[in-house]
Simulated scan of single mutants.
Amino acid sequence: MSENLINTWSKRDAEEDSMTTEHAWIWREMIAAVGETDFTNAKVLDFGCNQGGFLRLLYDLRRYAAAVGVDIAQNAVARAEAQKGDRPITYRATDRLSDIGDGFDIAFSHEVIYLIEDLERHAGDIRKVLKPGGDYYAVTCCHSDSPLWHSWRPKIQEFSNVPVPNHSVSDIAEAFRRAGFQVSVQRFLASAYVPLGGASDYFPTDVDRIETYSRWKLMFQFTSGA
Rank of each mutant, 00 (worst) to 15 (best):
E3T: 08
G53M: 00
I116Y: 01
A123T: 03
R187L: 11
A33K: 09
N4G: 08
I6E: 02
S214Q: 14
S2I: 06
D208S: 10
G52A: 06
T20C: 13
A138F: 00
I89R: 01
A73C: 14
T223A: 09
D118K: 04
R121K: 15
V194Y: 06
N75R: 13
A14W: 07
I89H: 01
L55Y: 03
E3Q: 07
P204E: 12
N4T: 09
R63A: 12
T205H: 07
I172R: 00
V70D: 01
Q186F: 02
E120Y: 06
Y202P: 07
T37S: 11
Q74S: 13
E15W: 11
R178C: 09
W216P: 06
R92C: 13
E120F: 12
S98T: 15
F54L: 10
D201S: 14
H23P: 04
E36I: 09
T140I: 09
Y136H: 08
Q182I: 09
T40F: 07
E117F: 05
V207Y: 14
A175I: 02
E174H: 15
E29H: 14
V68L: 04
Q74A: 11
D71F: 00
E16T: 10
A192L: 10
M19V: 11
D102E: 13
G53D: 01
A80S: 10
G101E: 11
Y202D: 14
K84M: 05
K11H: 04
H122L: 15
H167M: 09
N75M: 12
V112D: 01
E81G: 10
R12W: 07
V44I: 13
K131M: 10
I156M: 06
D95C: 11
A82I: 12
H110P: 05
I72G: 00
S151K: 15
D17C: 12
E81M: 14
D99F: 07
L97S: 02
L115M: 13
H23E: 10
R187M: 14
R187N: 15
I126F: 04
F188Q: 05
L5C: 05
R12I: 14
T8S: 15
D145P: 02
W152M: 10
S168D: 04
S170D: 08
T94Q: 02
S2M: 05
K84R: 12
K84G: 06
R79V: 12
F188G: 04
A67T: 03
G52W: 03
T140Q: 06
V169D: 01
V129W: 01
N4A: 04
H110I: 09
V162N: 02
F203T: 07
A78P: 14
L196P: 10
V68M: 06
E29Y: 06
A138G: 05
G134M: 01
M30Q: 08
F181I: 07
Q51F: 03
Y137A: 03
L189N: 06
Y64E: 01
Q221W: 08
D38F: 11
Y64G: 02
N7T: 15
A190E: 13
A82W: 07
R87F: 02
